[in-house]
Every structure is written in C-alpha cells, then in structure tokens.
C-alpha cells in the first residue's frame, strides 16, 4: 500500500468525508440493532426463556395464523399430549395481561400461570404465592414478603427473580387454577411424532423460535426494524461503491502511469482494496465506539437497548464486509486501464 497510504493522507478532505459517512452509518446501524434487540427482549424474553422446546397452540381456524391472543387449550388437550410417545413433558401455561397493584402503585403486567411443580414456573410459586420479575417488583415498589393485588386477587410475593418480559410488560409468575390454559409447553425427545400429537390433541405445535411470531406486536415491530437495518447495510455498500467508483475514475491516469512503469494489475488492486478496507475499518470502529458510548448512556434510561457484541460488533463487521464488496466492484475497473494512455500528451 505504498501509494494508497499516501493518497489517503494527501486527499484528506475527500477521505475524511467518506470516513464520516461510514462512522455515521455504523452509529445508526448500531443504534437500530441495539434498539431492535432491546425491544425484542421486552417482547419475547419470557417465552424465549421457557424451559420447553415446543409450544402447542389451539389449532387456529383455516387460513389464520396461530396467536397467543386467540389460543385456548383445555385439560383434555394437554393430557392427550402427555400420552404421546416421545413427549417427556406437556405443561399448560396460561398467559393473561392484567393490572397489578400494591399500595397506591399500579402496573400493567402479564401473568404466566403454570402448575407449581411443573418446572415451568420458578421456585416459590404456589396458591396465593407469586414470583415477580425484577421490573414488576420495581414498578410496584414491592419485595419478597409484601402483598400485591393481581386483577381481583390478593397474593403474597414469594420471591423476585429474573427479567422475564412479555409484549412489553413485566411477567408475574402465578399458580394455574382451572382447566384452561393458553398454550402447552412441550418437552420432546427425538422420537416424538409431532404431527400425530397435533392430530390427537387438536393443536398446532411450533418450535419456541417460531412461536415468537405469534406474539401480537413482535413480528411487525421486529420486522420493520430489521428491514431498516437491512436497508442501512445496502445503502452503505452502495455509497462506498459509489465513492470508490468516482475515486478510481479520478485516478485512472495515475493508474495508467503506474502500469506503464511496470506495476502489475494485482499489485494495483491490492493497493486500492487495502485503502478501501483501511478506510472502512477505521470508520466502522469509530462508529461502533460511538454506538457503544451511546448505548451506555441509553442503558441508564427507560429505553430498551441491548449493548453487546451481537448488536454493535456484528453489524460493524457486516458493514466492513459489504463496504469492501462495494469497493471491490468499483476498483475492478483498474483492470481495464490501458498503460498506453500514459504515453503521449493526451493527459
């Protein structure tokens, strides 16, 4: 990168401009990624964290997709699942959003009701005894031993544990009563015949990951944020490609001279691509650092934002890779430059 380094320093203004674009793109992608992950966790962490590998929903009417809101399963159904060979566990889980109150404080929470000894609910749940997620406890201002009102019922807080959240409300674990639930949490061995189980119980079983899309707002919310992120990736690759196209055209006379002096085409391609990668890595790392800094500030507020390698470094890596592809396509035109044009006065 003999010439490329010197060009970088010599054409400071132009490269600084492009570098700034890369920094801002990375910052934006980092923020969107952190926010998408934060919102997703608020939406699905309780379901994603269930100790189950599949969830069985009431089979929806023809043409409709399964949804937590519309699903209702009965004792016969979970008992039918329990009898299926290869199914090691079939536990009912009732999900209901309701108002919780303690003293003069209220909060919207989601009650996850499971049988106390099922393994789904955390330890401490029993009749009249509930376990609050940390956020629910904080919003209600209660701790272990205090009393809370859930809807119409009084309960004692057995413990405060976990960060489970569902559809942007904190989760409260309670004991299931009655013969109805929302879904059946399944633990299946390798030999389980899911189709036969669905047939016998009149349900639709999905993997936990697929079941997340059955949470009302999750798909729309996550889908639009991911779309935004995808567009940002594409735009930054295009912008990088456009910049290096113009840059390569501008320096094609220099490239012709270098070729006439005996530079091989691979040498020139390496030189130019190294320059692009240096610019991308520098800009992206600066942008990722800014995104991480912003993430730290945001984490102190109520905005859900997840700051980790997956939300900051991964998109930065993707930006570098896509940007390098864009630049590589632009730089390819070096191959076509004719050294003959360096001779004569036609410059």
């Amino acid at each position: 990168m003999f010439v490329a380094w010197r060009d970088l320093r010599f054409a400071k203004g132009r490269f600084a401009l492009m570098g700034t674009v890369v920094v801002l793109m990375t910052l934006l992608v980092g923020l969107v990624s952190g926010l998408a992950e934060g919102l997703a966790r608020e939406n699905v962490s309780a379901v994603a964290g269930l100790p189950a590998d599949r969830l069985a929903f009431a089979a929806p009417p023809d043409g409709r997709a399964v949804s937590f809101a519309d699903s209702k399963v009965s004792r016969e159904q979970w008992e039918a699942w329990e009898r299926q060979p290869g199914v090691t566990g079939a536990q009912p889980l009732a999900i209901r959003t309701l108002r919780a109150a303690a003293g003069d404080r209220t909060a919207s929470v989601t009650a996850f009701a499971a049988e106390p000894d099922s393994g789904l609910a955390p330890r401490g749940v029993g009749p009249g005894r509930v376990v609050l997620s940390a956020k629910a406890a904080e919003e209600l201002g209660v701790g272990a031993g205090d009393a809370v009102r859930l809807g119409e019922r009084e309960a004692a807080v057995a413990a405060v544990a976990g960060e489970a959240s569902y559809s942007h409300t904190p989760v409260v674990w309670t004991a299931l009563d009655g013969d109805d639930a929302t879904v059946i949490a399944l633990r299946t061995g390798s030999g389980a015949d899911l189709a036969a189980g669905d047939e016998a119980a009149g349900t639709t079983a999905l993997s936990v990951d697929d079941a997340l899309t059955a949470i009302g707002s999750y798909q729309a919310e996550n889908g639009s944020l991911q779309l935004m992120r995808g567009f940002l990736f594409v735009i930054s690759a295009l912008v990088t490609g456009a910049f290096f196209t113009v840059w390569t055209i501008q320096r094609s006379a220099d490239v012709a001279v270098l070729k006439a002096l005996g530079a091989s085409t691979p040498y020139l391609l390496r030189d130019a691509l190294g320059q692009a990668v240096a610019l991308l890595v520098g800009g992206t790392l600066a942008g990722a650092a800014l995104a991480a800094g912003a993430g730290v500030l945001i984490s102190g507020t109520d905005v859900p934002f997840v700051l980790d390698a997956a939300t900051v470094l991964l998109p930065a890596g993707v930006l570098i890779a896509l940007g390098a592809c864009g630049a590589a396509l632009a730089i390819r035109r070096i191959t076509a430059v004719d050294p003959l044009t360096a001779l004569g006065s036609a410059r």
Partner: peptide, 16 residues
C-alpha cells in the same frame, strides 16, 4: 519494471 525506463512527455508524477 526491471529493464525499461520510460520518461513521459508530461512528467506524469503521482500527486501524493
């Protein structure tokens, strides 16, 4: 690059 030296009509130096 090994055996030929070319002096161009325009100096064709690299600006940076």
């Amino acid at each position: 690059r090994e055996r030929i030296g070319i002096v161009f009509q325009q100096p064709n130096l690299l600006p940076s």
